[in-house]
Simulated assay, not measured.
Amino acid sequence: MLFLASCSIQDTTNEFQRLGLPEPASSNAIPIGDLWIGTWIAAGAVGILVWGLIGWAVLRYRRRSNLLPRQNRYNLPMEIMYTIVPFVIIGVLFYFTVIAQNKVLERDPDPAVTVEVVGQKWSWTFNYKSADNPDVGTDVYNAGTISETPDLYLPVGQRVQFDLRSPDVIHSFWVPAFYQKMDVVPGRDNSFQTTPTKEGVFAGKCAELCGTYHSAMLFNVHVVSEAEYTAYLKTLVAKGQTGEATGPANANKFGPAGEGQTR
């Protein structure tokens, strides 16, 4: 019990050090995590300064008699300061945001894996391309429904590109452990790349309030070895889930996603 308690305390301490973020599991998590922590440090410093000035003003100028202090209509140096300082703070935060954004949006012209992610009412479809998987030899997919959470498999340590599509409404593809999300917009092709850095099973979800069964738009991300990844794709071939699926026709119904794929 003491050992389990110590593990729990350590996990909690690590989460506090990350200021609430989960343990990172992708290459993009590093610049995003640094920006997150740096922003909170800046906000904390500003907060401490403002609270300190408020406390100083309360104590220094507290009422000591019935006489009112001299009233000023304005204080030009003070007004200039509190106009310029916020712009300086915003400029610094903007600078580091652009640096993190550029790192996150960097692209490899030849990623190892490309997954077409289709967000539809009310689940997800994942298409794996045959060009990336010569041992499999064909396009394969996995799709979910309201009552069946789909699985997304990724090989650890390999560059992955996510091509995001939606046939109906706006969704948002989010894996919290990757520290990144991106909207899935009808009629617009969004994409990003990242490298999974840690094996394990991670939660994924839709981060956009997309309608009636938004709460059902969950998926599991399995980051595995390359051999396990290839073996999983072959199980999809054995199930007959070959070709490209743009979203299961029965995704908005309860039950497994089997027949009725729209291609």
Score class of each variant (00 low, 15 high):
residue 176 P to G: 10
residue 215 S to W: 06
residue 126 F to S: 12
residue 213 Y to R: 04
residue 135 D to M: 10
residue 157 G to K: 10
residue 180 Q to W: 14
residue 137 G to S: 07
residue 136 V to W: 00
residue 127 N to E: 14
residue 167 P to M: 08
residue 150 P to A: 11
residue 133 N to Y: 01
residue 182 M to Y: 09
residue 123 S to M: 14
residue 145 T to E: 01
residue 125 T to Y: 06
residue 116 E to A: 13
residue 155 P to G: 05
residue 195 T to P: 07
residue 159 R to A: 03
residue 143 A to W: 08
residue 142 N to C: 01
residue 159 R to Y: 01
residue 201 V to F: 03
residue 179 Y to Q: 10
residue 156 V to K: 05
residue 112 A to Y: 08
residue 171 H to D: 00
residue 164 L to V: 13
residue 137 G to F: 03
residue 132 D to S: 09
residue 183 D to G: 04
residue 131 A to K: 14
residue 114 T to H: 09
residue 202 F to E: 06
residue 208 E to V: 02
residue 212 T to D: 01
residue 142 N to I: 03
residue 130 S to V: 10
residue 168 D to V: 10
residue 144 G to H: 02
residue 125 T to I: 05
residue 178 F to G: 11
residue 128 Y to A: 10
residue 117 V to E: 14
residue 184 V to S: 02
residue 166 S to E: 02
residue 184 V to G: 00
residue 207 A to T: 06
residue 153 Y to A: 05
residue 155 P to L: 05
residue 215 S to G: 03
residue 165 R to A: 13
residue 207 A to I: 15
residue 130 S to L: 09
residue 204 G to A: 02
residue 216 A to P: 07
residue 217 M to W: 06
residue 113 V to I: 14
residue 117 V to H: 07
residue 134 P to K: 01
residue 181 K to P: 09
residue 159 R to L: 00
residue 138 T to F: 00
residue 130 S to H: 08
residue 216 A to H: 09
residue 201 V to M: 11
residue 216 A to K: 05
residue 147 S to N: 12
residue 204 G to V: 05
residue 185 V to T: 15
residue 137 G to N: 05
residue 147 S to P: 07
residue 168 D to K: 10
residue 183 D to R: 12
residue 170 I to Y: 03
residue 198 K to F: 02
residue 149 T to S: 01
residue 167 P to H: 03
residue 132 D to T: 11
residue 125 T to N: 14
residue 112 A to P: 06
residue 114 T to M: 04
residue 191 S to K: 13
residue 151 D to H: 04
residue 112 A to F: 09
residue 142 N to W: 03
residue 113 V to K: 04
residue 135 D to R: 10
residue 168 D to S: 06
residue 160 V to Q: 04
residue 170 I to G: 00
residue 168 D to R: 02
residue 194 T to H: 10
residue 152 L to R: 12
residue 143 A to I: 01
residue 158 Q to S: 00
residue 212 T to R: 02
residue 165 R to F: 14
residue 178 F to T: 13
residue 133 N to H: 09
residue 133 N to R: 06
residue 136 V to D: 00
residue 200 G to W: 15
residue 142 N to H: 07
residue 137 G to C: 07
residue 139 D to K: 07
residue 177 A to D: 15
residue 152 L to Y: 02
residue 159 R to M: 01
residue 182 M to W: 10
residue 133 N to A: 11
